[in-house]
Design a protein around this nucleic acid. Structure first.
Length: 274
DNA sequence: CTGCAATCCTGGGTGC
DNA sequence: TGCACCCAGGATTGCA
């Protein structure tokens, strides 16, 4: 569900509340979401660990704990993390409850149960392939125009698929990729290596802008997404193409096209994006 | 390296 | 009200 801006907003909404808190109990309603180690070991190691800070890499949340342990959570499509102060009515999507030493709760809920959790020492994070192989993230020094130029030159697949691939750029998902291509005026089915340097430059600025705006607006809420305090984002009101199938393009009035590209639903303006 | 399909799951929305 | 079908913000794996 969430892409990098949403995960970052969740991180920001949790970090102050969780830093210094001790996890005193882990309750599983659906233990199979834990991918490493076994659920029993996950529970045993996590119990009585203190949370030092909450970090993020791409779409992964990293809860740094004492004893050099790290709790890693990937929300995938419909995962939600909520800091709860007054006890909760468990609903059927509540999957894992972390009980804290101040009697508050960190609740993991997930409709489609595709989310993944891991617990391991800091120096073993390389075991999580998607985390270890992640490409540079927008808005960082590593994600430079030079990097984007060199990277796109090497890839001969559709630009949409390349931008979605976390190995090449970390943190972009379907919404922000469609929006980036719309702002840059690039058709999603273009071959990545065929883009000119001036198109790459437009794309570079568009990606950074879309991610920065997404964070500034508190993320994009369609259905499930909420931050750690249950608040919705507002970036859905700023989208140019995503979710606007058949509605007029804001620039030229042409109806926005929806088409499956690289296996993902894709929105674009056939006039403005070439 | 690339595309493609299948896979993990449970809905919401729509059309008949 | 029921039912079938499409679609969904992610990512991995196996195959051609």
């Amino acid at each position: 569900m969430p892409e990098m801006p949403e995960v970052e907003i969740i991180r920001r909404s949790l970090v102050d509340k969780l830093s210094g808190r001790k996890i005193i109990e882990v309750e599983f309603l659906l233990a199979r979401l834990v991918k490493w180690p076994s659920a029993a070991e996950f529970q045993a190691v996590l119990t009585n660990r203190t949370i030092v800070t909450v970090a993020r890499k791409g779409k992964y949340l990293l809860f740094h704990l004492d004893d050099n342990q790290v709790l890693v959570i990937h929300l995938r499509m419909t995962g939600r993390l909520q800091y709860v102060t007054r006890g909760i009515e468990k609903d059927k999507f509540t999957r894992i409850i972390f009980k804290l030493d101040n009697e508050d709760l960190l609740v993991y809920a997930d409709t489609r149960t595709l989310g993944t959790l891991y617990l391991m020492p800091l120096d073993e994070l390389w075991r999580i392939t998607g985390l270890a192989a992640m490409g540079p993230e927008p808005l960082t020094l590593e994600f430079s125009l030079l990097y984007l130029n060199e990277m796109l030159k090497k890839h001969h697949g559709k630009i949409k698929a390349v931008l979605l691939n976390q190995k090449y750029i970390g943190g972009l998902g379907n919404i922000y990729v469609d929006e980036s291509m719309a702002i840059a005026g690039i058709h999603p089915e273009r071959i990545a290596s065929s883009l000119s340097e001036s198109e790459n430059e437009k794309l570079f600025h568009a990606i950074n802008k879309v991610i920065a705006d997404g964070i500034e607006h508190g993320g994009t809420t369609f259905r499930d997404y909420r931050d750690g305090e249950g608040k919705s984002g507002s970036h859905q009101h700023h989208l140019k193409v995503y979710g606007r199938k058949a509605e007029p393009c804001y620039s030229c009035g042409t109806p926005i096209v929806w088409k499956e590209v690289s296996g993902r639903g894709t929105h674009f303006c056939p006039t403005c994006q070439r």
